[in-house]
Design a protein around this nucleic acid. Sequence first.
DNA 1: ATCATACCTGTAATTATATACAGTATTAAT
DNA 2: ATTAATACTGTATATAATTACAGGTATGAT
Lengths: 200, 200
Amino acid sequence: MINLTTRQSEIFEFIKKEIESNGYPPTRSEIAKVFGFKSPNAAEDHLKALKKKGVLNIVSGASRGISIIKEDLGIPVIGLVSAGGPILAQENIEKRIPSSQNILSHGVDFYLRVRGDSMIEAGILENDLIAVNKKTQIKEGAIVIARINDEVTVKTLKSISPDLVILQPENSNYSNIEVNPKTEDLAFEGTCVGLLRDFA
Amino acid sequence: MINLTTRQSEIFEFIKKEIESNGYPPTRSEIAKVFGFKSPNAAEDHLKALKKKGVLNIVSGASRGISIIKEDLGIPVIGLVSAGGPILAQENIEKRIPSSQNILSHGVDFYLRVRGDSMIEAGILENDLIAVNKKTQIKEGAIVIARINDEVTVKTLKSISPDLVILQPENSNYSNIEVNPKTEDLAFEGTCVGLLRDFA
DNA sequence: ATCATACCTGTAATTATATACAGTATTAAT
DNA sequence: ATTAATACTGTATATAATTACAGGTATGAT
């Protein structure tokens, strides 16, 4: 999608909200009123711009003939992460789950399919999907998605300090991973905010 | 919902279809045209009838001010099950999750909040929500929701025969539950088809 | 038998709405 | 420096749309 301006985003979001709450789209005048425009033509201009940018469709002559073009790709499900590249690279995306179906309380940036049994004692099994939020502040005690030298792993963050990060598997067969961020390549991809298991 | 007449259903379905495909509701004239009415007032009459029957809402004065009232209550989340009564009794329903948000591959009849730690070795922890399907055939090896003498429990179904049902907890601290369906009150509420954990 | 409801036609008026045209000011790109 | 895009005001008008009123017919219920 071509980037919308701040104003255009506001208008676009308003239209979406109206459709959601009323069940039908707003008129030019309604938009103008809400945004304080003194002319419905201001809204008309915005609609034309939004149509041009391909985010909505306008049926000429029809009242409220506005419909949003949903290009909502949904929340990506990350399968096996290939070494190198960013975690959200196209080749890692297994499928997408519509974001409207997000029933978790936190925002979910992506789902990661769990490989291995290192977290079974935390009730996280192989093939489960863990919901990951990228923005949540990384905290000790949380279950985090870390990348160590191109290896992506899910572990409990035991402790964090400038020269020592301890990642703890939740499986007594495995031992803690100790990383020195100064000498090793360590990045946090996000925090686990949910879990999804499908008994297919 | 009060029963709609055949004609009313046709009109109602058409309106829903229009909203789905166009993104906005039809006008009286559009309805009239599609159904061959020679007057938009025929459509008006139908809309009034449909409003009276509570299936849609009409905003007076607004063009296309039609919205369908969704009676979809969503999938119930069952908290603590009170002894006696059916599992889906009103007093057991903690909240509802819109069925449109169901991302699991099987149909989900309700979610059950897990109490206790008897299934931790199957990765099912306290407070997780397990998605339950009532219709799936109860099979050995599946995780089932059983009711034994008014006690609702989640266990793996180890074996089933006319006079002995063995339910296995997935926690080595607990031992198997053996029930004779002929002498004890045993009912299967459904099969676990998914799991949802929210790190709130 | 009468009444309510469903299901229409036909007309018409008010209002809601889209949308063109003519401007103005600001900002980002070439 | 000029052009294009953004973000509006202000006016005007054709037409889209709601919706009332006045009928008509058929059907099932009281």
